[in-house]
Computed example of a mutant assay.
Amino acid sequence: MEPIKIIDAPACPLPLANVDTDQLIPARFMKEPRSVGYGQFLLHDLRHDGSGRPAERFILNHPQVAEAKTLVARRNFGAGSSREAAVYALVDFGFRCVIAPSFGDIFASNAVNNGLLPATVSEADAEALLAALGDAPGLLQVDLETQRIGVGDLSVTFFIAPTWRTKLLNGWDDIDMTRQHAETIRRFADDYASQRPWLQATPSTEIITRS
């Protein structure tokens, strides 16, 4: 995964609470292979009207959305089912960060494992960020190293679990998190083996013949 240090790019305001994984990617699109690009399915039923035409005033249809890397929403983002495809849709659309007061637990874990930063802010700070952005994408900076978000004159802090922060800063997955301790693991294995030599398998010299 690509490491995240600072995201300095337009952000999309999405002033909605309880945006669940069924909304992020409706189930009917999950039969498609990811190679088709899941970004086109992101919030599909909110992005289109009843006749299937793009909803003109929905933020993801804004002409300036192409460069957006951050989505700012309200509480309980990513609740609902555990479908990882919800994260795929956000990442394939181009987002690297979602800012909200709270997230669905499984969604947040899936996000980190796919290089998407779930930045948790207070309810008041979420509202302040949404107000600062208004109705259109606006330039916003997310600094994962200092855990601060800035837009215009507004600067707020955000929370992320230390382990998740380490993974995202380095572009690591769970295997990489284990590999960082490779030397310690090797020394332990060597010490354990030297203290318990009887546990080591030895080639057998016995030859068994079969009739």
Rank of each mutant, 00 (worst) to 15 (best):
M1Y: 01
P3N: 03
I4H: 12
I7W: 12
P10M: 03
A11L: 06
P13N: 11
P13E: 09
L14T: 04
P15H: 10
A17S: 15
N18Y: 08
N18E: 10
D20N: 15
D20I: 09
T21C: 07
I25Y: 11
F29E: 13
M30T: 15
M30S: 08
E32L: 15
E32Q: 15
E32C: 13
P33Y: 04
G37H: 11
F41H: 14
F41K: 02
F41Q: 01
H44I: 03
H44N: 14
L46C: 01
R47E: 04
G50L: 12
S51K: 14
A55Q: 13
R57E: 05
R57M: 00
R57L: 02
R57C: 02
F58K: 06
L60R: 01
L60Q: 08
H62V: 01
P63Q: 09
P63C: 11
A66K: 14
E67R: 11
E67G: 07
A68I: 11
A68P: 12
K69W: 04
T70A: 09
T70N: 05
L71I: 06
V72Y: 01
R75C: 09
N76E: 05
G78L: 01
G78F: 01
R83G: 02
R83H: 04
R83I: 04
R83F: 05
A86V: 06
V87M: 13
A89T: 03
L90N: 03
L90A: 13
D92Q: 02
D92N: 09
F95Y: 02
V98D: 10
I99F: 11
A100P: 05
P101R: 12
S102T: 13
F103S: 00
F103A: 04
G104W: 00
G104L: 01
I106K: 07
I106A: 13
F107R: 08
F107E: 05
F107D: 05
A108F: 00
N110K: 07
N110Y: 09
A111D: 08
A111K: 09
V112S: 05
N113G: 06
L117T: 02
L117C: 15
L117E: 03
A124F: 06
D125N: 14
L129M: 06
A132W: 03
A132Q: 11
L139D: 02
L139T: 05
L140I: 10
V142Q: 12
D143K: 11
E145G: 03
R148M: 12
V151E: 07
G152K: 06
L154C: 09
S155I: 04
S155H: 07
V156H: 01
T157W: 03
P162F: 00
W164G: 06
L168N: 03
L169Y: 08
N170A: 14
N170L: 12
N170C: 11
W172M: 06
M177G: 06
T178I: 13
H181F: 15
A182E: 14
A182T: 08
E183A: 14
E183H: 14
T184S: 13
R186A: 15
R187G: 10
R187L: 14
A193E: 14
A193R: 15
Q195I: 02
P197D: 06
P197E: 12
T202F: 02
I208N: 04
R210H: 10
